[in-house]
């Protein structure tokens, strides 16, 4: 094999190895992001869900009452017409008995039953619980720190390879976007500072120009205090 051919083969091998390294760094970044996403989305442990149920029932019941209690008494078609009026005429009709409101109705009317129903229902659903909510901030912070280190490492690796000049690699899209935004912001800031400097210099020049006429001599400009 010719010397050039041999060299090409070696370069291709190095390029392949470097590409694999970058690819592996990016996979590690993606894995850390997935881990964070899963941690954020994972259901809470059953014990914690149980603790929340009473609060949810109370809140839903209060919201339902706030929305519909006035209707119950005001209209002649609804619940209290048949039950609370002296003549007791008419059929019972419950306001707001759509799917969402029906749960509210239960929470308002029979909170213990609603809570019990929820507890029973949650036990009939199969799910894999994640970490308790008290542990999550710490876990998320740890993943984010690892993610930041991985991102930084990958970015530095690409920068270093590109600086070598032998091969060119594209940065991740978010890095390209961030750098472009930063460059634009820097440019705008420089432009703003230059504009302000020029405007200020114009005012300074007007204010510091030698004063014409005899008035200037009358003023104690040279007074040393």
């Amino acid at each position: 094999m010719s010397l050039l051919g041999d060299l090409r083969k070696k370069i291709a091998a190095v390029a392949g190895s470097v590409s694999e390294q970058i690819q592996s760094a990016r996979l590690a970044i993606e894995a850390a992001r997935n881990e964070r996403r899963q941690l954020l989305r994972a259901p809470l442990p059953l014990a914690e869900i149980d603790e929340r149920i009473d609060g949810v029932v109370e809140r839903e019941g209060a919201e339902w009452l706030q929305k519909h209690a006035a209707e119950l008494l005001r209209t002649n078609r609804y619940l209290t017409r048949a039950l609370a009026q002296w003549d007791g005429r008419g059929a019972i009709e419950v306001p707001g008995t759509g799917d969402a409101d029906f749960f509210g109705l239960l929470c308002a009317g029979a909170p213990a039953f609603a809570a019990e129903t929820l507890r029973a229902l949650i036990r009939r659903v199969e799910f894999t619980a994640g970490a308790p909510s008290s542990d999550r901030p710490k876990l998320i912070a740890a993943i984010e720190a690892r993610l930041a280190a991985l991102e930084h490492e990958e970015e530095a690796l690409v920068d270093e390879l590109n600086a070598g000049g032998l091969m060119t690699f594209q940065h991740r899209p978010e890095v390209v976007q961030r750098r472009s935004d930063a460059a634009r912001a820097r440019e705008l800031e420089e432009q703003r500072v230059a504009d302000r400097r020029a405007r200020q210099a114009a005012v300074d020049a007007q204010m510091e120009a030698p004063q014409p006429g005899y008035l200037a001599r009358e003023r104690p400009d040279k007074t040393q205090y």
Binding site: Q206, P212, G213
Partner: peptide, 13 residues
């Protein structure tokens, strides 16, 4: 009577 503006205030010290 003059062609240039005259500063009305000076910061002496």
């Amino acid at each position: 009577g003059a062609h240039a503006a005259r500063p009305l205030v000076k910061i002496l010290n």
